[in-house]
């Protein structure tokens, strides 16, 4: 995965490792550990979305739905059937992969606007199901009393334990994804993004690869959803609605979708913006989201990581061809 990425990873790991100890002594910011747990969970979704959008060039406005499917599968299996949470998490990934396959095969034949609309429609349908299947999901009023995650025979309850667990998973997933990108598979994904016809001509089954990367992104969203379930221990359909799908796209775009680091930076930044700093604006929050999305799409298509010459050569072309 390249020397440069290992170095960045080392730096990021050190930062993540010491971060809690920097903020915990100060009361005003000690809850940043909690915010970072959410940032880590969302990062898993956004890493998958970055593979899909930034590398393979396919848009999805359904990531919140996969996040939700993972979350509800975990929630239902553990609270109603007493299944081991880790097993339930695995179950969630299987469900998500299956759903992503069923939806992905016909959807990914579509391009651009139609793909966006199809994933959007799918996401809204899933959300309606969450709200309507009251017996299973608790409906709009939500689902509560979801058991805690256990590890080595102990409940994981403290923010700090969650922090290291979630970020540990994030780094494992990052390493996995960097390896994928720096391989035959990753090259094929970039090839699909650049020129589908040419990719086919050298033997890349473009449709199959698009579906598989869509499934991978769904599986990552599902793992994130399961973690989310056990962290907050209650679920509500509004955490998985269209606005959240758009937020995930926003997180990836703010950071820069052509780089996994961009997805990570964007997610952490936007989680802080959403959970912390925009609270000041209260009702204006939604306007701020719209404005940020617009400004990034119009003026900074390469995202934050494209600022200052970092990956400059890709800057202009960050969005080029994506989803067309």
């Amino acid at each position: 995965m390249g020397r440069k990425n290992w170095l960045i990873m080392l730096g990021a790991a050190i930062f993540i490792g010491v971060f809690p100890w920097l903020v915990m002594p100060f009361k005003a910011v000690s809850h940043y550990v909690d915010v970072m747990v959410f940032a880590g969970i969302f990062s898993l979704v956004c890493i998958g979305l970055s593979l899909l959008m930034g590398y393979a060039g396919q848009i999805s406005l359904a990531q919140a739905a996969f996040f939700g499917i993972g979350a509800y599968t975990s929630g239902i299996l553990t609270s109603k059937f007493g299944v081991n949470p880790w097993l339930a998490m695995g179950g969630g990934t299987v469900v998500c992969a299956t759903v992503a396959w069923v939806v992905g095969v016909p959807s990914l034949r579509l391009k651009g606007h139609y793909l966006a609309m199809a994933t959007l429609g799918f996401g809204v349908i899933v959300n309606i199901i969450f709200a309507e299947e009251v017996n299973w999901t608790g409906g709009p009023s939500g689902m509560i009393d979801i058991p805690y995650l256990r590890m080595f025979g102990r409940k994981i309850t403290s923010d700090l334990a969650w922090y290291y667990l979630v970020w540990g998973i994030v780094f494992l997933v990052l390493i996995f994804c960097f390896h994928v990108l720096h391989s035959r598979v990753g090259r094929a994904l970039r090839a699909i993004h650049e020129d589908e016809r040419a990719a086919e001509s050298v033997g890349v089954p473009t449709a199959g690869f698009k579906v598989r990367v869509f499934m991978l992104s769904a599986v990552l969203a599902s793992i994130a959803g399961s973690l989310y379930t056990h962290y907050v221990t209650c679920l509500n359909p509004s955490s998985f609605n269209l606005m959240w799908s758009i937020r995930f796209v926003l997180m990836v775009m703010v950071g820069g979708m052509q780089s996994l680091w961009g997805a990570l930076v964007g997610t952490v930044l936007m989680t802080f913006v959403g959970n912390e700093w925009l609270q000041v604006f209260a009702e204006l929050e939604i306007l701020a989201y719209g404005a940020i999305l617009l400004v990034v799409a119009l003026f900074l298509p390469g995202g934050i990581v494209s600022i200052g010459g970092f990956r400059r050569k890709r800057r202009q072309s960050a969005l080029e061809g994506a989803g067309t």
């Binding site: 775009m253 617009l294 969005l319 067309t324």
Partner: peptide
């Protein structure tokens, strides 16, 4: 802009 940009822009609007 690309189709993806236009989608994002109209969503932002």
């Amino acid at each position: 802009s690309s189709v993806l940009s236009l989608i994002i822009i109209t969503i932002a609007v």
